Amino acid sequence: MAKRLSTGISILDREIEGGVPAGSMVLLSAEPASQSELFLYELTAARPSLYLTTVRSDQSVEDAIAAANTRTGSPTVRDVGGDAPLDRANRLIGTLPEEATLIVDVVDALERYDRSRYRRFLNELQTVMVNTGGIAILHGLKGQNIPANRDLTAHVADVVFDLRTKITNAEVENRLVVPKFRGGKALSEPIKLRLAESVNIDTSRDIA
């Protein structure tokens, strides 16, 4: 079995047999109004991390991580938004050390490039991750303006974490579905999560 790397989120590691295979690319798909950034912050705790932000400023991300009331690391944060985000991301990815975590938040800006160019980016990223034995997390939003290349991201990704958020009159319900897991097994059932100050299992019972 390929070497597993901890995600930094213990409850998730338990469900996926210890972590994600080294060299994997992961798509974390989530609603814009979910607190999926908690996943990203906790993912930085396991090992040295490079956090590429395409929407928020690097200072905004650093402040949010510092203020998070959960276990985080001290990632290197770089703003690659603005002009030529794909080129800037490519240059920084080439500097990744061994067994590092790469986070792209959000990948939507890169997915809006020409399909052939974005495909080349994904292939180059895959090569870097295999060579360094790290993990790449591509955070994609499921809003009303999903980029046309999202299907390409999901196809190339080794693992897909699909965070589904349902808002009712009484509560906000989050379930994590793992429909794809190369090098392991996809989860047969979703994990009910509580996203507040940290990522935790929601032990409340479902009411039919």
Rank of each mutant, 00 (worst) to 15 (best):
V128R: 12
V107Y: 02
E37N: 07
A22T: 01
A66M: 15
N145H: 05
V199L: 02
A68V: 06
A2V: 15
E37C: 08
K166A: 04
I137Y: 13
A46N: 06
T101G: 10
R47P: 07
L28D: 10
F161L: 15
G140K: 05
K142H: 00
L187G: 00
S49K: 03
R91D: 13
Y51E: 06
T72R: 02
M129Y: 04
I191M: 11
N90R: 15
N131M: 14
T168L: 07
T101D: 14
V172F: 08
E15F: 00
Y41N: 11
I11P: 03
A30L: 07
D79N: 14
D13Q: 03
T127E: 01
P21H: 12
A154C: 09
G23Q: 11
S198C: 08
P75Q: 05
T132C: 02
V77C: 01
D151I: 08
N69M: 12
K166D: 12
P85I: 12
V106R: 11
V20P: 12
V160P: 04
R117E: 08
T72Q: 05
I146H: 03
L38W: 09
A157H: 05
D108V: 01
L40R: 01
T101M: 05
T72V: 13
R14L: 13
E189G: 01
G73F: 01
E189V: 03
A46S: 15
D206I: 06
S29D: 15
N90D: 14
R120I: 10
D58W: 05
T132R: 14
N145W: 05
G81H: 03
L193V: 14
R117P: 02
V159Y: 06
G81A: 08
D162H: 10
T53V: 06
E189C: 04
L5M: 14
V130I: 12
N169I: 09
P147C: 02
R47V: 01
V156Q: 00
A33F: 15
S10L: 11
T54R: 02
E98T: 13
T76K: 10
D114A: 11
E173A: 13
L38E: 15
Y113A: 11
V104P: 00
P32W: 04
H139V: 07
R119W: 01
P85A: 06
E62V: 15
A136V: 10
A33P: 09
D105R: 08
A46Q: 12
V128G: 07
A84H: 11
N200D: 13
L125T: 09
L138V: 06
G73Q: 00
G18P: 10
V177Q: 06
T203F: 10
R115S: 15
D13M: 00
R47F: 08
T53L: 09
N145Y: 08
T127M: 14
R47Y: 05
E173N: 15
N149L: 09
V159S: 06
D108M: 01
L27K: 07
A30S: 07
Q59E: 08
I167P: 04
G82E: 13
F39C: 01
R119G: 09
E124D: 11
T127S: 02
E15I: 00
P179R: 11
R175N: 04
S49F: 03
P85M: 11
G81N: 03
V104N: 01
N123W: 10
V159F: 06
R56Y: 09
A89N: 04
T132V: 02
K180P: 02
S116K: 07
T101H: 10
K185A: 10
D151G: 07
G183I: 13
I201R: 07
L5Y: 12
